[in-house]
């Protein structure tokens, strides 16, 4: 678990795990460091050269991040240092008590949930949780829930509903877990029930796609009155790799599939699947946890405020109508 604030002060200028498309940036960064070293060693005044290089670096960064392909965005959404649900909970909530278990079979660590205090409000917070090292990742099943995760989530959403507490969910999963046990215990039924039950909730539900919005596994906690997405996060019906394997018969065509699937925030807003995009720090949330949290805090406050003074039925109807509109059909001949 991370402490409050920036994860790594260095990461603001240095990408810990560089992507291929960030190569020009790291090259410039290296040059600047070299010049700095040289100026310190030789007591030369190179400040104007360094300043011009830094300006160039800044420009290059903006340029690269403004023109990312969908596939490159997916790399950022999957970045190992990207803040996960518990990071946001730690940084955004003034207090948090985690609750566990579906009361039927098990507790699923791939979904975390609990009672949170956010900006003076009580909220039920629920989200997919990934792990950072091998041990954590295995424990969290790479953020891929079993049916128990979805059943825990809906149990706690209904609990929140009974006491008039709004719900915030953080979506970050490659998908629901495809395993024998998951099938035996009704993975499909668990997700389906959540879709129906969430649509009926009489408290506001705010959904934020913070990383990967992997298909039904994401939607299983994603039926919200407002659905927000972080700038570099994605939401798709299938992973680009899976789509490429089926439609192009070649998993290596994933970048093409990523293009075709229109899975970025901008596209999703256009189709009404997502209501708003939360801006990320330059180069991705992992570069500046503090700034990311500030942006997300503002967006969440704004989203929650919309439902002040609305009646229970109005809130449920609002959510029904939101999803009722989605899809594009025509009258064929």
């Amino acid at each position: 678990m991370r402490r409050k604030g920036k994860r790594n002060p260095e990461s603001k200028t240095k990408t810990l795990i560089g992507f291929e498309f960030e190569k020009p940036i790291s090259e410039l960064e290296l040059k600047i460091t070299e010049l700095r070293d040289l100026s310190a060693r030789e007591r030369l005044d190179l400040s104007s050269e360094i300043a011009s290089l830094e300006e160039k670096l800044d420009q290059k960064r903006k340029e690269i991040y403004a023109h990312l392909t969908p596939w490159q965005r997916i790399q950022i959404a999957r970045h190992i240092d990207r803040p996960y649900t518990l990071d946001y909970i730690n940084m955004l909530m003034d207090d948090f008590k985690e609750l566990h278990g579906d009361r039927r079979f098990a507790d699923d660590p791939a979904i975390v949930a609990g009672l949170g205090l956010f900006e003076g409000r009580k909220v039920m917070v629920i989200g997919h949780q990934k792990g950072r090292n091998v041990k954590e990742r295995t424990f969290r099943r790479f953020g891929m829930p079993n049916p128990e995760g979805y059943r825990k989530a809906i149990r706690l959403m209904k609990l929140a509903e009974r006491f008039g507490v709004p719900i915030i969910t953080f979506v970050d999963t490659p998908g629901a877990f495809p395993g024998v046990g998951a099938e035996e215990r009704g993975q499909a039924e668990a997700i389906a029930s959540n879709l129906e039950e969430m649509s009926l909730l009489k408290v506001p539900v705010i959904v934020v796609v913070i990383g990967e919005g992997g298909s039904g596994g994401a939607l299983g906690i994603g039926v919200g009155n407002r659905v927000l997405i972080l700038e570099y996060a994605y939401y798709s019906v299938i992973s680009p790799e899976g789509c490429a394997a089926i439609l192009w018969k070649d998993g290596a065509e994933a970048p093409r599939a990523a293009n075709a699937l229109k899975l970025t925030g901008k596209d999703l807003v256009k189709f009404g699947v997502v209501d708003d995009i939360v801006p990320e720090p330059l180069g991705g949330a992992h570069n500046d946890y503090e700034l990311m949290c500030k942006n997300l805090r503002d967006a969440l406050k704004k989203a929650l405020n919309r439902f002040e003074g609305m009646s229970e039925d109005e809130i449920a109807d609002d959510r029904y109508n939101r999803f009722r509109k989605l899809g594009v059909v025509v009258n064929g001949v």
């Binding site: 389906a192 879709l195 129906e196 969430m198 649509s199 009926l200 298909s215 039904g216 939607l219 994603g222 039926v223 939401y235 798709s236 019906v237 299938i238 789509c243 089926i246 439609l247 699937l261 229109k262 899975l263 999703l268 189709f271 699947v273 959510r319 029904y320 999803f323 009722r324 989605l326 899809g327 594009v328």
Partner: peptide
């Protein structure tokens, strides 16, 4: 879900379930 309509297909899952 039909891949050719991406998330719009995905959203039909929520829509039909809500109607039920």
């Amino acid at each position: 879900a039909r891949m050719q309509e991406s998330t719009l297909s995905l959203m039909q899952m929520a829509k039909t379930s809500a109607a039920l």
